[in-house]
Write a protein that binds this DNA or RNA. Structure first.
Lengths: 210, 210
DNA sequence: AGACGATACGGAACAACGTTCCGGTTAGCA
DNA sequence: TGCTAACCGGAACGTTGTTCCGTATCGTCT
């Protein structure tokens, strides 16, 4: 690989080190790529051809690979704000709802996030090396908040204590159908069923998760 | 498409019509392809390159497409016996276990079937046109048996009555991790969790699904 | 056994796509 | 302004799914 791989291609990777000088044209191209990719992903999915993205951004293929050596890096960068918003939703849900209810609503929120990004569910499930770093990015970002919600509900005696948060995050993502293929609410129902599994032999609430 | 598409390329499609004469060389090549594909799928997954299969079978690419116009047709043919065995397992499970237990064991059986076919879970989830007919083949083959198990358990008052068998089949398949990536029993645990969701507010058994 | 026509073949050709790399350009600093 | 490191675009390359055409094989009839 070229020395460009030492660049700051990871989303938000500004920890510790002095910020590396980024040239104005490079910054412009990165921004153009993110804008173009967001549009292309929305219409054609996260697995859209590279050429579609570069053409829309008005940059070369080499430029895309320099800034985002793997597709997963581009995906992570494009969706970073929404990932953060989803993670941040946990605390407000926790403040407004009982523990198990907050957990349920957050899992449904997470499922909706995955479902509304065209092709994302399939990408996470695909085993394709191009997407290798995406699952770990999501784990790293969502596990702290999910663990908190889960622990709180367990301590409140509202759900079982033998479920691993990593298992739960992955399972919820995997249950997700792309929104355009889910006209009958499959995802919502199956996530709710999984959540009821958490409550099995626990929980006295009669209110359904919506 | 060529007129070869009118051929008997669908697995087991011998209903009603007089059997079309198949030449000896064509039968030989079909058998070689099925044997080769089974081996290639086992080592490289159901998404292995066509050339890998044709090279092992000693036939041309055109021959493969003539006999199996879509990859899903080849996959269905290769796994047909195991699909049948999985479907047929339902009645013996029903004979040996209580209704909800039989349902649980069958769903775990189904999950193991999917998990042990390298790449099958990802293929079913991918949305790729090459695999288009595979989900419906599985639905057509598994829905009758799953519906029977589900109805029986509902009537026995052991599980909830508001879950659609098609939803359940799809969700179980989607929860499945490939066996080589599942060293910690994720699939089994998550399927069990989903099954506990079926039992939520029903079922008085204290015995865990194994 | 030979002829004939229908069935079936192999693999070259083609398009699509991910990815690399090299000659040329641009930006930032002294 | 000059210099050099950073950065660029897109041609080239390899991989892969798929088609199609000239040729071969099979099965039936005489």
């Amino acid at each position: 690989m070229s020395e460009d791989t030492t660049r700051e291609a990871n989303a938000g990777a500004t920890e510790g080190r002095p910020p590396r000088r980024v040239r104005a044209d490079a910054q412009r191209n990165t921004d153009a790529l993110l804008t173009a990719a967001a549009e292309v992903f929305a219409t054609s999915g996260v697995d859209a051809p590279v050429r579609q993205i570069t053409a829309k951004a008005g940059v070369g293929a080499g430029t895309l690979y320099r800034h985002f050596p793997q597709r997963s890096a581009l995906i992570a960068a494009v969706f970073r704000n929404e990932v953060d918003a989803c993670a941040d939703a946990a605390s407000s849900l926790a403040a407004q709802h009982e523990p198990a209810e907050a957990l349920a609503k957050w899992l449904q929120r997470f499922a909706v996030f995955i479902a509304t990004k065209r092709g994302l569910s399939a990408a996470l499930h695909s085993g394709d090396p191009a997407y290798d770093t995406l699952p770990s990015y999501f784990q790293q970002r969502f596990m702290p908040v999910l663990s908190t919600l889960l622990d709180t509900a367990v301590k409140a005696g509202e759900i079982r204590s033998d479920v691993d948060p990593e298992d739960l995050l992955r399972a919820t993502g995997n249950l997700t159908l792309p929104a355009q293929e889910d006209d009958k609410g499959h995802t919502q129902r199956m996530v709710a069923l999984l959540i009821d599994g958490l409550r099995y032999r626990y929980g006295t609430h009669t209110q359904e998760t919506r």
